[in-house]
Design a protein around this nucleic acid. Structure first.
Lengths: 359, 359
DNA sequence: CTGAAAGCGCTTACAG
DNA sequence: CTGAAAGCGCTTACAG
């Protein structure tokens, strides 16, 4: 910047002003812009944000971008934030809890981002403590321990799982198996618990043989866990803890000559884009990832505008999106084109009846 | 930091030293750490990187994280960079070319990241100019205009398309249709051109009716473009410009009662995770997204270590991954478990014969 | 081992 | 409209 000032024969103050669009005499402005262009001057963002005390940037931390639900969530966050003039930075931290905490620690320092939205697969006390101590606003997507003093977006996944089970029950299925995610993750435990509760409520058999959990949220891991299930017991329906696991199961069923949905009806969770990728298309519990992302972004914007605002928790209400893997029909029960991208079709992040506010 | 110093009764210099692990008298160090913990002190990263002239952070800019190939690419970048002690920040810029340039402009400023890896769908002269003028090292993944002075990773997608066509030709297919991506994107044009060249080389009919292009790299857009193709002409094979488009086409074929591969053999491009999601599984041209990501990261690391190193271009060589959508068999022709995650199974980002160096 | 001081590259009242 | 100067929060020679 000093070079530009020298080249243009002005002070650095003028360079700063002109380059930031403040008024200046046309001749001066021209000289400065010309000099800046000639020298290929680009501002130093660290210096600027040190002085300005803001970065105009928000950080989104997720565990694994490989899960399409996170992509939807990111889209929701991005849209709201971009409209508000913030850029979005994404950190994918793998699913290492320690790494999560250290990434969080880094992010919540000042000077790196003005705010943080984090959606951790694992939430421990240490992480909560770090987030609560953050000098920049933080919004957590996911269920927090009681009493955590953080803005928060949740989804009642238990009721989502219940919707799925009621749907299967209504179709006459009585032996419903559960293909769960890793139980050392937050959604893994919660969806399993939700399955057990809902199964009991419906009077379905509480047979532990009907449950199998993966050790990762991946297609590969699902194949293994589902093989255990198949080798062990019989069932006429399967609820998988997310869409990718469900698709892996459907593939195995197809290879074994079991028909979906005639022999086994299959339901996934997340209602992500991949529900359209399988044959038959996949019935799934929509947890409103994109909407949750947008809700979290709006919560963050509010907190940025008013650091003293009371804590707030927003809760997304799940919906069931019925497709061929349970009904066999190409026509969906609800509205919408059967082959439309579900996440896009279903989610207007800016409004909707499924959003509930808490406290 | 001044607060911590006061609380601990030392100077800010000592606080800085202790918190950065430099030697200090144990008593002093303890007092400082205690004070920092009590006050919930977190360093200001803008100040630190202004002083240090480095952020220990690298930025990856991609157009659309919805495309699974980018996820693979990100994994490749992330692994190499993390091992080298850098954190990875991702910016998804949608596919807006202007936005791309302005994001790039922002990123290549100093103080935000130490280096940039960018994989743009559209590359124009303005973008190249901005990148060339960057004060921080830049690596571009994608084909650059001749003479661009930038470290670069490319893939010979034409030869990939040729592999696919030769495979289809070898299976006796003579009317091969092409479902292309948007022609205003770099890969969109290049893959279409590659198709035409390879078709001519094989003596296949150069019938324009066999070509249809989408206006977006999405499942939805593919349905529309593929309907045009179906309504217009007959074919016994389809090459789609990426996996998602291929899966959309397979779905339509399935709905119309056309068998894959018996009636129409289908090949995608990218060999992404979704190739396992469809029934039948999808034969696909692997463009080594994860490997390209890793190559780009290594190029960046090299440039970071030696700003004066000569420019370098690395070229990834495509491979064909044969699956059920062309052979009908559940057994792949090559090695590997048929249901394994292709991207993980196929790619060791750290080595391999498919990598070629140029100039 | 520790403190006082300079300086990283910006922005912005404050004068003129 | 423009310049001189202070200061954002760090780190690090330089003394002691």
């Amino acid at each position: 910047m000093a070079d530009v000032a020298r080249e243009a024969g002005v002070s650095v103050a003028s360079v700063s002003r002109v380059l930031n669009g403040h008024p200046a005499r046309p001749g001066t402005a021209d000289r400065i812009r010309k000099a800046a262009a000639e020298l290929g001057y680009l501002p130093d963002l660290a210096a600027r944000s040190l002085k300005m005390r803001r970065t105009e940037q928000v950080s989104l931390v997720v565990d694994d971008l490989g899960n399409p639900a996170y992509i939807d969530m990111m889209r929701g966050v991005e849209r709201v934030l971009r409209d508000a003039g913030y850029r979005l930075q994404i950190s994918a931290i793998g699913s290492d809890a320690d790494l999560g905490t250290s990434t969080a620690l880094h992010t919540v320092s000042r000077g790196y981002a003005d705010g943080l939205i984090i959606c951790p697969l694992r939430i421990n006390a240490e992480l909560v403590q770090v987030l609560e101590a953050s000098p920049i606003p933080v919004v957590v997507i996911g269920t927090l321990p009681r009493g955590a003093r953080l803005d928060n977006v949740t989804v009642d996944s238990s009721s989502g799982v219940r919707l799925a089970l009621e749907h299967l029950h209504g179709l006459g299925r009585r032996r419903v198996a559960f293909l769960g995610g890793p139980v050392d993750t937050n959604p893994g435990t919660r969806r399993l618990a939700g399955f057990r509760t809902a199964a009991r409520a419906l009077g379905l058999p509480g047979d532990p043989e009907l449950e199998s959990v993966t050790d990762a949220w991946t297609y590969e891991a699902a194949l293994t866990a589902f093989d255990r299930l198949l080798g062990r017991t019989d069932f006429d329906a399967l609820l998988a803890a997310n869409d990718v696991l469900a698709i892996a199961a459907m593939h195995t069923l197809h290879r074994r000559g079991r028909r979906v949905p005639q022999d086994v009806a299959v339901v996934g969770v997340d209602d992500s884009e991949v529900t359209a990728f399988s044959t038959p298309t996949l019935t799934s519990v929509a947890l409103g990832a994109q909407r949750r992302g947008a809700m979290a972004a709006r919560l963050l914007l509010r907190r940025l505008a008013d650091p003293e605002a009371p804590l707030r928790r927003l809760r997304e209400v799940p919906r069931l999106q019925v497709r061929e893997s349970t009904t066999g029909s190409a026509e969906p029960v609800g509205a919408g084109h059967p082959t439309a991208q579900p996440s896009t079709a279903a989610a207007d992040p800016h409004a909707g009846p499924a959003e509930q506010e808490h406290r």
